[in-house]
Design a binder for these strands. Structure first.
Length: 667
RNA sequence: GCACUCAUAGCUCAACUGGAUAGAGCAACUGCCUUCUAAGCAGUAGGUUACAGGUUCGAGUCCUGUUGAGUGCACCA
């Protein structure tokens, strides 16, 4: 099971617009919103219609042009066929703008080709001069808290956490790039029965041992005892079950016996049923096992320790702190390897009592209700959710109560604009309920809470379970990929000129890029089947390809610098006017960077950045293949290409950083 | 039983959120290294977008139903 989380309107005439005095005006021409302004004015001129929908999209690459106006929706406003309309608007724009030098009409699609003058004088210039192209200030003055990773402290981090960590880290980067002040927090689920299990096992078998004496990472050290505890529990449960099956209920309370009888009866019925509902049968079997488990010595000892912990038993608290510290040290090591950092850590042991006051408040307001046994509930059936317990009959809080408290506390203390929870999709329901409760309590920020839900990561053998040992943990995965990268590099004979330290860095970063890109390029919502042997490739659509492209770009850049081409030719790029197709394609795509960043932030999807940068690298590879950047009879061409090369490098660099990948200067 | 999510080439993923002839990579086959990194480029082949209806100028995308897979429905976290 995963670790749970705590888990402008323009008033100028069209003509003026096409000949802007201020260069910054022109840059907006590319923004489809502004292009739509011009088209609106064309329609106004041609047909005298001022209110109609303008739909523009990027032209698909199998057609000529860069922007496409969809004329189908216009047909009902202008009483003509979409083709006719496309033809007329195209002609008008062509005649009235030097930037639109060509157009073609296919069915109701008007494909506009902007002139090389536009791509050179406007786009290229913008990219060249604006070092921060792509950055925006959408989030200026707004503070966002993003909670991610959020593991239990009884076992090492595995693939599920990895996807979580990468999504959280990348999302935080993207939001920062959009001007938000981002606070990264990690909420440790540091209390509960699972921790007590490790503690008990250590007390019994490991008193004299520490991670240092055993020379292993702290989290591995602790999980060793956790598994030990689970095995004891399993054995004891098995013994009890056997007794029960033989009718021996010595020392078992009456109510447990009755429950057992009811369950076995149900199981019997299900097994007799010709339909054989396997899912239900396993469910009942699991219920029986859990029932037996509650009667084991070990389980009782765990429960006992848990209450001692809650009562503040010093000896236990000291041990608890010690165990957790070992785990944290292990985790930190893994974060470091991943190159991921947090701004703060929250601990469930410090938040689990929060939220009770809120429940009282809600009760007073009549938002919640109390049952006869004193437990407190909320009825969300009107929103197609169920009734949900908020406070137990003994007055203690449950998971959601503390999440309510934590949310309110954070927002009040930090004055947050928004909180984002990166938590697996199995908790979709929990967050729906949580957000709904907070809205009902009247917090204005509640409507901006966001659950960044992501699909599960499965192995080809199915779901990972720590208890069953079929887990791919992060450290092992990194090591494995490190070796793959090392072997590939050595086989290709690319180790020359690098010392051992540089090689270690190279292999490590290559391993990380492969892993990170592989997990981030997939839409967060979708499940991933992860095959350690086959899934991670070094060729094609991979992190390695991105690094390779970047390294080549930097190689050329260095060579250009050696030849002093960068500065020498800088002034001459203006003379280069006839663009190669691959050059134009690159400029078109480079210019979309800004838009992609906004989309990624809006949809909470680093995958959009990943797909963007892959496409950019592909276009660059074509460009690189078609022209020889540093050799041409026309020096102006070289000047331009050296600059274009540098711009590609910059945007790829930036994209990789947003994905949490460290770009490599050579490989 | 109820709720939510997913289903696209043999495999892993796209498709700018309703637009054109559904695109990439891997695997297979074929070409390209005496000028910048071949971890690359170009090409061939591969599809009734799970199935059936519906909405409209237009559906992989929206609605309904069917099938299949996953997840959730605890006084656990």
């Amino acid at each position: 099971m995963w670790a749970y989380a705590q888990r402008n309107a323009h008033k100028d005439t069209p003509k003026k617009l096409y000949y802007p005095n201020n260069p910054s005006d022109i840059t907006y021409l590319c923004s489809m919103k502004l292009l739509s302004q011009y088209i609106k004015e064309a329609i106004q001129k041609l047909y005298g219609i001022s209110q109609c929908p303008i739909e523009i999209q990027h032209t698909r690459k199998e057609f000529e042009g860069q922007y496409t106006l969809l004329c189908f929706p216009l047909a009902q406003y202008i009483k003509k066929s979409p083709q006719e309309i496309a033809q007329e608007i195209g002609t008008y724009l062509h005649q009235n703008s030097p930037y639109i030098h060509k157009f073609n009409v296919i069915k109701g699609f008007l494909n506009l080709s902007l002139s090389d003058l536009f791509w050179k004088a406007v786009v290229f210039k913008t990219l060249q001069e604006n070092e921060n192209f792509g950055k925006n200030e959408q989030g200026k003055g707004k503070k966002i808290l993003i909670e991610f990773c959020s593991p239990n402290t009884n076992k090492p981090l595995h693939l599920g956490h990895l996807r979580n960590l990468l999504l959280g880290d990348s999302m935080a980067n993207i939001l920062q790039y959009c001007g938000y002040e981002v606070i990264r927090t990690n909420l440790y689920n540091d209390r509960g029965a699972h921790i007590c299990k490790s503690m008990l096992a250590w007390q019994k078998f490991g008193q004299d041992k520490t991670p240092q004496t055993e020379n292993i990472k702290g989290d591995y050290f602790v999980v060793h005892y956790y598994i030990m505890a689970e095995n004891i529990l399993k054995t004891q449960t098995h013994t009890i079950l056997q007794k029960w099956e033989n009718g021996n209920f010595e020392g078992i309370p009456q109510d447990i016996q009755e429950k057992y009888q009811i369950l076995t009866q149900k199981l019997h019925e299900l097994e007799q049923n010709p339909k054989k509902d396997l899912k239900k049968i396993t469910q009942i079997q699991e219920d029986i096992r859990e029932l037996a488990q509650t009667q084991t010595e070990w389980f009782k000892a765990v429960q006992n320790m848990l209450s001692e912990w809650e009562a503040g038993n010093q000896e236990i608290l000291t041990l608890w702190k010690q165990m957790n510290t070992w785990v944290y040290q292990g985790f930190e090591h893994t974060y470091q390897k991943l190159n991921i950092t947090f701004d703060r850590y929250d601990y469930e042991s410090q938040t689990y009592l929060l939220g009770k006051e809120l429940v009282k408040k809600g009760l007073a307001k009549g938002i919640f209700y109390q049952k006869a046994d004193n437990s407190v509930w909320i009825d969300l059936t009107a929103e197609k959710l169920d009734q949900k317990l908020l406070l137990r009959s003994n007055g203690t809080s449950v998971y959601i109560t503390q999440d309510m408290g934590t949310a309110v506390q954070r927002h009040e203390e930090l004055n947050l604009y928004q909180s984002i929870y990166v938590v697996a999709s199995e908790q979709d329901y929990h967050f729906k309920v949580l957000f709904s409760i907070l809205k009902k309590l009247g917090y204005e920020w509640a409507s901006r809470l966001y659950h960044l839900s992501y699909g599960m990561v499965y192995l080809p053998t199915g779901r990972m379970k720590t208890r069953e040992g079929n887990v791919v943990d992060i450290d092992a995965l990194i090591n494995e990929m490190y070796q793959v990268a090392q072997k590939a590099t050595q086989d290709l004979g690319k180790t020359e000129g690098l010392n051992e330290q540089e090689l270690t860095y190279l292999y490590h970063q290559l391993a990380l890029s492969a892993i990170k890109y592989y997990l981030l390029k997939v839409d967060p919502q979708k499940d991933i089947v992860f095959n350690p042997e086959e899934s991670i490739d070094l060729q094609g659509n991979t992190g390695t390809y991105l690094q390779y492209t970047y390294a080549r770009i930097q190689g050329i850049f260095r060579k250009a610098q050696e030849k002093d081409l960068v500065h020498f030719y800088h002034a001459k790029t203006d003379n280069y006017n006839q663009l190669h197709t691959t050059e134009r394609n690159l400029l078109v795509h480079l210019y979309r960077f800004e838009e992609v960043i906004l989309q990624a932030a809006q949809h909470y999807s680093p995958a959009l950045v990943a797909n963007y940068v892959y496409e950019l690298c592909r276009l660059y590879a074509q460009f690189h293949h078609e022209v020889i950047i540093l050799h041409d009879s026309n020096p102006d061409a070289i000047a331009f290409r050296v600059q274009l090369n540098a711009i590609c490098g910059r945007i790829i660099h930036q994209s990789l950083k947003l994905l949490g990948i460290q770009p490599l200067e050579r490989m």
